[in-house]
């Protein structure tokens, strides 16, 4: 158990060489690697953290944007709905206006039709009544229609109430001394004198007589003096018939607008309305022969009454 001093020195040298070698090849690189790795991991963690914060920030931003977008969307949707409603209202208004225009047009055309019908009816009634009257009068009396008319007129004058007579006298006195006598046909002198004498009798004076032929009267006689008019003519009767017919028609037409549908659902119901109108016109057209009959039946008693008078 000796100490070999050479070995001791050699081992010391060996040891320090080993120290140097291991420092060079082991500790330094390994420690460096550890440090580098730790730094790398630390930086990676830092990066990750930074990314996380960024991601969170972005998430918040995204959420904000999303919210904003939702709000915008809602706003736009509301706008669109409002616009649509407005447009709808506009369209409905337009449709209503159109419907109203169409209705007024329809009314106008109906009125025109009515007028035409009235005219036709009046014409036909006149003709019919005149023909019937003439025929009846001819059948009934040997005298001519004009003579009969004058007779009736004279009778009227004579039978007229005192108030009426007074009116005639007043009218005569305030105005000119002439009396206008209008007839559908030329009066024979006998009848003219009859009229003259009757009027003279009523007035008590002898006024100037002016005899005039007016074919529009159809049949009958009219006595005019300074705004006062005394008349008996077929034209009068015809106008009364015409009045009654036109009143009936008017009543019928007035009922129609009430039955007309609302403007809102006009478009839907328009065809129906048209159909109704058509039906009505048909009915009216059908009315004509009825009216004819009616007029004939109506006019006959009048004439009868006239003849009886």
């Amino acid at each position: 158990m000796k100490i070999n001093w050479f070995t001791v020195i050699a081992q010391i040298i060996n040891f320090f060489v080993l120290v140097w070698l291991l420092r060079r090849f082991l500790y330094k690189p390994v420690l460096k690697a550890i440090d580098e790795r730790e730094n790398k991991i630390a930086s990676q963690l830092k990066d990750a953290q930074a990314k996380e914060t960024e991601a969170k920030k972005e998430q918040v931003e995204f959420l904000k944007k999303n919210e904003k977008f939702d709000q915008q969307k809602k706003k736009l949707m509301d706008n669109v709905i409002a616009e649509t409603n407005e447009e709808r209202e506009k369209l409905l208004e337009g449709a209503r206006n159109e419907a109203a225009a169409l209705r007024s047009k329809l009314e106008k055309s109906l009125n025109a039709i009515q007028e035409n019908l009235e005219h036709d009816i009046a014409q036909k009634t006149q003709n019919e009544v005149f023909a019937i009257t003439r025929k009846t009068l001819k059948d009934l009396a040997s005298m001519s229609l004009e003579e009969q008319s004058v007779n009736i007129f004279v009778g009227h004058l004579k039978e007229s109430k005192n108030e009426e007579k007074k009116k005639l006298i007043e009218a005569f006195r305030t105005g000119s001394n002439s009396i206008l006598v209008q007839t559908a046909y030329d009066l024979p002198p006998k009848q003219q004198t009859e009229i003259k004498s009757t009027v003279n009798e009523i007035l008590g004076t002898k006024p100037q007589f002016q005899f005039k032929t007016v074919p529009e009267l159809i049949g009958g006689i009219e006595l005019t003096s300074n705004g006062y008019k005394l008349a008996w003519s077929i034209s009068e009767y015809l106008s009364s018939i015409q009045k009654s017919i036109s009143e009936t028609l008017k009543a019928e037409l007035e009922e129609e607008p009430k039955k007309m549908p609302d403007a809102n659902d006009k478009e839907k119901q328009e065809p129906k309305a048209k159909q109704k109108v058509q039906v009505k016109t048909k009915a009216k057209i059908k009315l004509i022969p009825k009216g004819k009959d009616m007029k004939a039946s109506k006019s006959k008693p009048k004439v009868k009454s006239v003849t009886s008078k």
């Binding site: 070999n4 001093w5 001791v8 020195i9 081992q11 010391i12």
Partner: peptide
């Protein structure tokens, strides 16, 4: 080598 007193002495001297 650590079983040699020379080595251990060398290390101790170090």
């Amino acid at each position: 080598p650590t079983g040699s007193l020379s080595t251990t002495a060398a290390l101790a001297i170090s």
